[in-house]
Simulated scan of single mutants.
Amino acid sequence: MQLRYWKVRPYVLTAGRTRTRRPLLVHTLVSVPYYDAVFAAGLLPEARSLYEQARRTARSVAELSAVCGISLGVTRVVVDDLAATDRLLVHTDHDNVDFRLLERLRDGLRKLA
């Protein structure tokens, strides 16, 4: 007997949603504070992949998207769903943003354009 893996459409993974309840930027870090194997077994393969990758070390949303091969928009929604169950921790450290560095980066990119 041969098992077939059917890739789940993004619409199914996100239940048709395109927005998140919280701001999840590409550099937002997420991690799994307590790994639950039973919970992981009940997830769709794509969500399980995100959960497993965030378990290993804190990763950015963009990195999870790339490593798991899931679009950034879908990754944001699935990460938000996992965070809503308190299985995934979203690190919101906006106080340590160096705005001078961001402004220099912006100015440098404008010069290149």
Score class of each variant (00 low, 15 high):
82 L>D: 06
112 L>Y: 13
71 S>Q: 10
75 T>Q: 02
35 Y>F: 02
79 V>R: 12
5 Y>I: 03
101 L>Q: 15
79 V>D: 07
98 D>T: 05
92 T>C: 10
110 R>C: 08
2 Q>M: 10
60 S>Q: 10
85 T>V: 14
98 D>F: 05
87 R>T: 05
44 L>I: 03
100 R>Y: 09
30 V>D: 03
20 T>D: 07
92 T>H: 07
2 Q>L: 13
13 L>E: 15
10 P>F: 11
100 R>S: 05
51 Y>M: 08
11 Y>R: 13
28 T>D: 04
105 L>W: 03
110 R>Y: 00
106 R>K: 05
10 P>Y: 08
6 W>Q: 15
91 H>M: 06
81 D>P: 00
113 A>S: 11
57 T>K: 02
95 D>P: 09
2 Q>V: 14
53 Q>N: 07
13 L>M: 14
61 V>K: 00
98 D>Y: 02
4 R>L: 03
81 D>C: 13
43 L>T: 14
104 R>F: 13
24 L>R: 01
35 Y>Q: 07
103 E>G: 00
30 V>Q: 08
31 S>P: 06
56 R>K: 04
16 G>P: 01
82 L>N: 08
77 V>I: 07
42 G>H: 11
105 L>S: 11
94 H>E: 12
60 S>L: 00
5 Y>S: 13
52 E>I: 15
72 L>C: 14
76 R>C: 00
106 R>I: 04
61 V>F: 10
107 D>Q: 14
107 D>E: 04
72 L>I: 15
30 V>N: 08
15 A>C: 13
83 A>N: 10
113 A>W: 04
90 V>H: 08
93 D>P: 03
59 R>K: 15
83 A>E: 09
34 Y>S: 14
47 A>C: 01
79 V>F: 10
63 E>R: 08
105 L>H: 05
99 F>L: 07
16 G>S: 09
45 P>L: 00
98 D>P: 04
72 L>P: 07
98 D>L: 06
21 R>G: 08
90 V>A: 06
14 T>W: 11
62 A>H: 09
93 D>S: 02
13 L>A: 15
23 P>C: 04
52 E>A: 14
30 V>S: 04
59 R>T: 01
107 D>N: 09
47 A>M: 01
33 P>K: 14
68 C>I: 05
76 R>W: 13
34 Y>C: 10
78 V>T: 03
14 T>F: 04
47 A>D: 13
12 V>Y: 13
51 Y>H: 12
3 L>S: 12
41 A>C: 10
45 P>Q: 00
107 D>P: 07
46 E>W: 09
3 L>I: 11
104 R>H: 02
110 R>M: 05
88 L>G: 07
95 D>M: 14
56 R>W: 06
61 V>D: 10
86 D>G: 11
79 V>P: 12
49 S>L: 15
11 Y>H: 02
74 V>R: 00
3 L>H: 11
18 T>P: 02
67 V>E: 11
99 F>P: 00
12 V>G: 02
16 G>D: 06
57 T>L: 13
95 D>W: 08
86 D>Y: 06
1 M>G: 09
16 G>F: 05
74 V>I: 02
15 A>E: 12
95 D>Y: 12
17 R>V: 03
22 R>C: 05
80 D>Q: 08
101 L>K: 11
5 Y>P: 10
55 R>M: 13
54 A>T: 02
102 L>C: 05
2 Q>K: 12
42 G>L: 10
76 R>Y: 06
65 S>D: 06
